[in-house]
């Protein structure tokens, strides 16, 4: 599971679907997508299907979010799974990732 799936959302925006097993082995692939997305003026992140996540994955999202914020791109979450939300909470990253307060996973 190297690369995150990409698709166009209903509104035509770019959507990056984060893999179910979003851990160390998957981060390089997702990073490539995120770098691309930054160049294309951002994308929506869909973490609704993420079942496993680790520090490396959240760190990657954090780096993406920080650069996106520096480029004045607003956060756009399409979905956040409970697993992701919980992990971000443990690592104290929920606020910096600008996870939406309540969103159906």
């Amino acid at each position: 599971m190297g690369k995150a799936a990409q698709r166009k959302g209903g509104d035509g925006a770019r959507v990056i679907v984060l893999p179910a097993d979003f851990r160390l082995g998957a981060v390089a692939g997702v990073k490539a997508d995120l770098v691309e997305a930054l160049e294309a003026a951002g994308a929506q992140l869909d973490g609704g299907a993420v079942e496993r996540v680790d520090t490396a994955a959240l760190q990657l999202l954090l780096a993406y979010r920080r650069e996106a914020a520096a480029r004045d791109l607003s956060p756009a979450w399409r979905g956040v799974s409970e697993v992701m939300r919980d992990a971000a909470g443990v690592l104290g990253l929920a606020r910096d990732l600008e996870l939406p307060a309540n969103m159906p996973a």
Partner: peptide
């Protein structure tokens, strides 16, 4: 944490 995503060794 590197300032840019590209510089991040994930």
């Amino acid at each position: 944490l590197p300032a840019t995503l590209a510089a991040l060794e994930p």
